[in-house]
Design a protein around this nucleic acid. Structure first.
Lengths: 154, 154
DNA sequence: TCTGAAAAAATGTCGGG
DNA sequence: CCCGACATTTTTTCAGA
C-alpha cells in the first residue's frame, strides 16, 4: 500500500513542509526526480491532502481557545446544526461525540467578549439546540495535527 | 502592526502554502522580491510559525478521534501530567479547561483497541489522575487550524 | 520506479529609488 | 518598503534502464 521510503518522505514533510525537494532526495537517498514522482503520486492518491502555513494565534489576536458541548433537542437537527457550526469562521473543529449524543466544538476567538457574542448570536439560537456548555482553555500544552507515521506497517 | 498586504499574503498561504512566490506576488500586486521580503519578516517575527503538510488520516489508518476528559487528584500533578500527555504520539491536543479543572485531550488512534491500550497503558496510571472519561467521535464535520484573518484590523 | 541530464521556473541577492 | 536585473537554486520533464 505504501512503502517505507514514502513514509520517510511524509515524515520529513510533516516536520518541515517547505524543505526543498533536493534535500528530501538527499535524505532518502533517491534522485530528486524520483522523489517528485512519489510526492505527486501521494498527492493524487489523496494521502497528501495539501500544504498549510502554521500561523501563530497569539500574534494575530486569536489566543482564546474554547470548547462547546452542544446537546440537541431533536436528533433530526444534527446535520443542519453541524453545517451551521462548521460555517462559522471561529470554528476550528466540529465533532459528534458518543455518550451524551452531543457536539464537541472547538472555537478560536479573540476574546471572551467575542466568544460570548459568537455563541449568543450564531449558536445558541440555532433550531434544535437544547444546551450549550462553554469551556475555556486556561492553557494549551500541545496543539498539532501531526499523524504518527512510525506505527504504520509498510 | 501588520498591514493589509501582509494579511493578504497570509490568507493566500493559508489556503495553499505551496503556491510559488511569483504567483503570490501577482495576486497582491507586488514584485516577487518584495513578497519574499515580507514573508521572511513574518517568519522572523514569529507570525508565520512554519509550514506543514496536511495528511489524510483515513488513508493512513488514523481515523479514530477521541477526546479524554481527565480530572486530577492533586493539583500539583498538573505540569507532569500535561507533559506526559503531550509526549504521547497519539496526542494531538492537550488543553487545561475551566469549570471542572480538568484536561481535555484530543487523541488520534488507529482503532478502539489501540485507543484502549494507550489509555490503559500510558494515561490511566499517571500519578495524580483521578478519572478519565473517554468520548469517541462518531463523525468529524470540520477539522482545521485556519485562523480567520478578515477580522483583523490592519 | 529509478537515474541523470537538460530545460524551465522559482528563489534569493543586491544596488538603487 | 519597493523595484528590477542578475545569479543561484530548484523544479520539472524526459529518454533510457
Amino acid at each position: 500500500m505504501i512503502d517505507d521510503i514514502s513514509l520517510q518522505i511524509l515524515s520529513i514533510l510533516q516536520e518541515k513542509a517547505r524543505i526543498p525537494n533536493v534535500e528530501v532526495a538527499r535524505q532518502v537517498g533517491l534522485a530528486p526526480s524520483a522523489v517528485l514522482e512519489r510526492i505527486r503520486k501521494l498527492e493524487k492518491q489523496g494521502i497528501i491532502d495539501g500544504y498549510e502555513v502554521r500561523l501563530n494565534p497569539e500574534k494575530l489576536h486569536r489566543d482564546l481557545v474554547a470548547f462547546l458541548q452542544i446537546t440537541l433537542d431533536r436528533p433530526e437537527a444534527c446535520t443542519s446544526v453541524a453545517e451551521a457550526l462548521s460555517a462559522l469562521p471561529d470554528t476550528q473543529e466540529v465533532h459528534y461525540i458518543t455518550g451524551n449524543d452531543a457536539f464537541l466544538v472547538k472555537l478560536r476567538s479573540s476574546s471572551v467578549t467575542e466568544l460570548h457574542r459568537t455563541v449568543q448570536k450564531h449558536i445558541a439560537g440555532l433550531p434544535g439546540i437544547a444546551r450549550v456548555h462553554t469551556h475555556i482553555a486556561l492553557a494549551t500544552h500541545k496543539e498539532s495535527a501531526k499523524i504518527p507515521l512510525d506505527a504504520i506497517i509498510p
